[in-house]
Simulated scan of single mutants.
Amino acid sequence: MTLRFTVDARDGGTAARAGTISTERGTLRTPAFMPVGTAATVKGVWPEQLREMGYGCILGNTYHLYLRPGHERIRGLGGLHRFMGWDRLILTDSGGFQVFSLSALRKVSDEAVTFRSHLDGSAHTVTPELAVEVQEALGSDVRMALDECVEYPTGRGEVEEAVRRTTLWATRSLAARAFEGGGMFGIVQGGMFPDLRRRSVEEICALPFQGFAIGGVSVGEGKELQRETVAGTAPMLPASLPRYLMGVGTPADIYFAIARGVDLFDCVLPTRNARNGMMFTSAGPVSIKQARYADDPLPPDERCDCPTCRGFSRAYLRHLYLQREMLGSMAMTVHNLHFYARMMRRAREAISRGNFGELVKESVVSENE
């Protein structure tokens, strides 16, 4: 596999590091946030806007693209990059989390996951091999091995079974590869049991993946347990390869994980919150639904230079939201993604200076929970 990772700088007072992921398609500076493009689009923004913000990688959702429009159709149209007009990196998940979320519609065995589509009720069987085949048909640059994610709380016996099955599927995923470009990441599970997390790390990290992900968090465990799990798991992952925290994405959670040595993040939070009228700002969150913004002539964030803040007032955005005008969702999405891009850029710069810990103390990310 041709994915390479280099650590370019380390922070003086934390485990944070700045690095570069290199593939045939291009490079990605880390730590990096990946906007979620569930159905071959990051909702509300053009690819060109994402490039202008500085994003180098987006996440595509294997489960949704497999169901609609279908991976073979996308392959026939030149792959996911051409299909969606995005020329930078794409990471595809394996679909494991989406299948996990369909608990009432699925059945899990060592061989495969069987489930019914949330779209039309049709029956499907996904094996580790099929998950790899779909991702290779999409042509993503980084692919994820199929894993079994369990919710919190789940009993120890069931979590232990998920760890065993995740290792089995990881081995099969690696054996199923037909495409040698890019890279494949393995996913660590183990619930909130430290010893099972360690076991999963030992088993998954013994396999020849090009990066490793912390999975199975943000599944109902609450902030304290989530952070304990991230803090305990991240240092056990190989320091020479990328570390990816899946699906965790408040600004404070991201900075917490960066300080523990995590390199990659994805979350629907900036885009989903925007569609629900919430913006991240340098002074804390702004919920545009609140009546106090009805006559507010100020931009969402006076310290932001994004197109939304340059052009629109809070009063106007509130009007758009109440009218359910699509421009409102688009404008607030642009702002939130600018906020995240700036947040990650500041993190990389602070790590390069060796003072990331000072940035965490001085920033308002904790106010944007």
Rank of each mutant, 00 (worst) to 15 (best):
F5N: 02
D8K: 03
G12D: 13
G13V: 08
R25I: 00
P31L: 06
F33T: 04
P35T: 01
T38I: 13
V45F: 00
W46K: 06
P47V: 01
E48W: 07
N61G: 08
Y66K: 11
L67S: 04
R68I: 14
P69L: 12
L77I: 11
L80D: 08
G85S: 02
W86C: 06
W86E: 01
L91F: 00
L91C: 08
L105M: 07
E111M: 05
R116H: 09
A131H: 12
V134T: 06
A137G: 09
S140W: 02
D141R: 00
V142H: 02
M144E: 12
M144N: 15
L146H: 02
V150N: 07
T154Q: 14
R156W: 12
E158H: 13
E158R: 14
V159M: 15
A162P: 06
L168M: 03
L174I: 07
M184D: 06
V188Q: 11
G191L: 15
F193R: 11
R198Q: 14
R198K: 15
V201Q: 14
I204C: 13
P208A: 04
F209D: 05
G215E: 09
V219S: 10
E221Y: 06
G222F: 01
E224R: 04
T229N: 08
P238R: 09
L241C: 11
M246G: 15
T250C: 12
T250K: 07
D253F: 03
A257Q: 12
A257S: 12
R260W: 13
T271L: 04
M278H: 15
T281H: 08
R292Q: 13
P300K: 08
E302K: 08
C304I: 10
C309A: 09
R318N: 10
R318A: 08
L322S: 06
Q323K: 14
Q323G: 05
Q323I: 03
R324L: 03
G328F: 01
N336Y: 15
Y340Q: 07
V360D: 05
V360M: 04
S363D: 15
E367F: 10
N368A: 14
E369N: 13
